[in-house]
Structure formats: structure tokens, C-alpha cells
């Protein structure tokens, strides 16, 4: 960069009277580089901070809807009454209805997902997230087993992954995802969570 025999189109000849031939002038060059960096980075950084917002966002229910235990314990959502389920009947699908956040919109009591419930004794219920652990499709149940229409994985009624289905390997890396639940004063309450699909380990999405 020190050889400038060639001049720009605009100037037929370089600085002629010049004390300032293109000799390096480190003070100016250094200062210019630093300032240039600052003015370039600031607007970009301002945007980046907001762009990263989803990684740090914690939704807080608005005052009127604030849950008694917000911020502390996990939230249990009522799905139905235990009565509604026949002991050893086929699994039934229920929507999970709770508060929904969609960026700026807050909507109380919205379906945000669904679960399969099967009552297996007087006081015991199996609870599965209906999302297929393979890649996130929605499984269905024919009363004998759970099937996923997307890549044909299938699961026993107890949720465990079937090894193969008519000779093909089951693509699901794990069994159906069970959900924490309790039965309280005759109601089935579920802690609804989604999990990352496609891996053996059942890791909840935050």
C-alpha cells in the first residue's frame, strides 16, 4: 500500500505541494480505525441486543391473571375430571387450556397443546404429550397403540416405543413423553411441557 504510482481518476497528479505524501501517519490511521469501529459497531450492537431478546425472555402473566405461585412452582393445568375417564378405557385426547403468550398478545385460557389420558386404575392415569418424540408430528391413537403418521413410529399404550413396525425400524429415539400430573379433588392436573424431539434424552423446552 505504500506505492502509489497510480492516482485516482479525479486527480491527474497526486498531491504536489504535499508535506503529506502517502506516508503512513499512524496517529490518524489508528484513530480513524478506532472511531470507524465504534461508529460501525454501536448501531449493530443496539440491534443485536434486541435480537437476542428471545434467549432471555421470561413471560410474566399480567397482574389480573397473575398466578398465585408464579415464578415459583411449576404450573399444574386442569385437564378434566377423573370421572370423565373410564378405567381401562381407550386413551382420550384432551386440549391443554391455559394462558397463552404470543409476543405482545396475552390471551388467557387458550389451547396450547394436547395430551392423551388413559385411566389405568381407580387412582392412576397415564399422561402423554401428543407430540411425537421423533420430529414433532402429532401422534394419534387407535385404541391399540399410538401411531405417528409422519414417519411411522408407533408406541404401546403404556407409551413405550415399539421396536419395529411391520419390519421397519421405529425412527423415534425414545418412548412417548410422559407428563407430570396429580389428581386433586377428583380432577386430573397436568404440568404441560414440550420436549426437544429427535434425541434419546427427554429434555424440556424452556
Amino acid at each position: 500500500m505504500s506505492d502509489h504510482s497510480e492516482n485516482s481518476a479525479a486527480s491527474a497528479s497526486g498531491p504536489t505541494t504535499g508535506s503529506n505524501t502517502p506516508r503512513r501517519n499512524f496517529v490518524f490511521e489508528g484513530a480513524t480505525a478506532v472511531i470507524g469501529l465504534i461508529v460501525g459497531v454501536v448501531p449493530f450492537a443496539a440491534g443485536l441486543v434486541s435480537f437476542l431478546d428471545p434467549l432471555f425472555r421470561k413471560n410474566k402473566t399480567p397482574g389480573k391473571h397473575a398466578k398465585a405461585g408464579e415464578g415459583g412452582k411449576t404450573e399444574m393445568v386442569r385437564i378434566c375430571s377423573l370421572e370423565a375417564l373410564t378405567t381401562n378405557g381407550p386413551p382420550q385426547r384432551f386440549p391443554v387450556i391455559t394462558d397463552q403468550f404470543d409476543a405482545w398478545n396475552f390471551t388467557p385460557q387458550q389451547p396450547i397443546g394436547s395430551v392423551y389420558l388413559q385411566r389405568i386404575s381407580d387412582s392412576e392415569v397415564l399422561v402423554f404429550n401428543t407430540t411425537c418424540p421423533h420430529a414433532g408430528c402429532s401422534v394419534s391413537c387407535d385404541g391399540q397403540a399410538y401411531h405417528c403418521p409422519c414417519h411411522n413410529s408407533s408406541f404401546e399404550l403404556n407409551g413405550s416405543k415399539r421396536e419395529s413396525e411391520s419390519g421397519r425400524e421405529n425412527p423415534s429415539p425414545r418412548s412417548l413423553d410422559t407428563l407430570e400430573h396429580t389428581i386433586e379433588s377428583g380432577d386430573v392436573l397436568v404440568h404441560y411441557q414440550n420436549f426437544y424431539p429427535g434425541r434419546e434424552e427427554k429434555k424440556p423446552k424452556a
Partner: peptide, 8 residues
């Protein structure tokens, strides 16, 4: 005197 654009 004339100067180049860079650096001043």
C-alpha cells in the same frame, strides 16, 4: 497544500 483523502 493538497492532501490525499486518507488518512486526514
Amino acid at each position: 497544500p493538497d492532501e490525499y483523502f486518507w488518512p486526514k
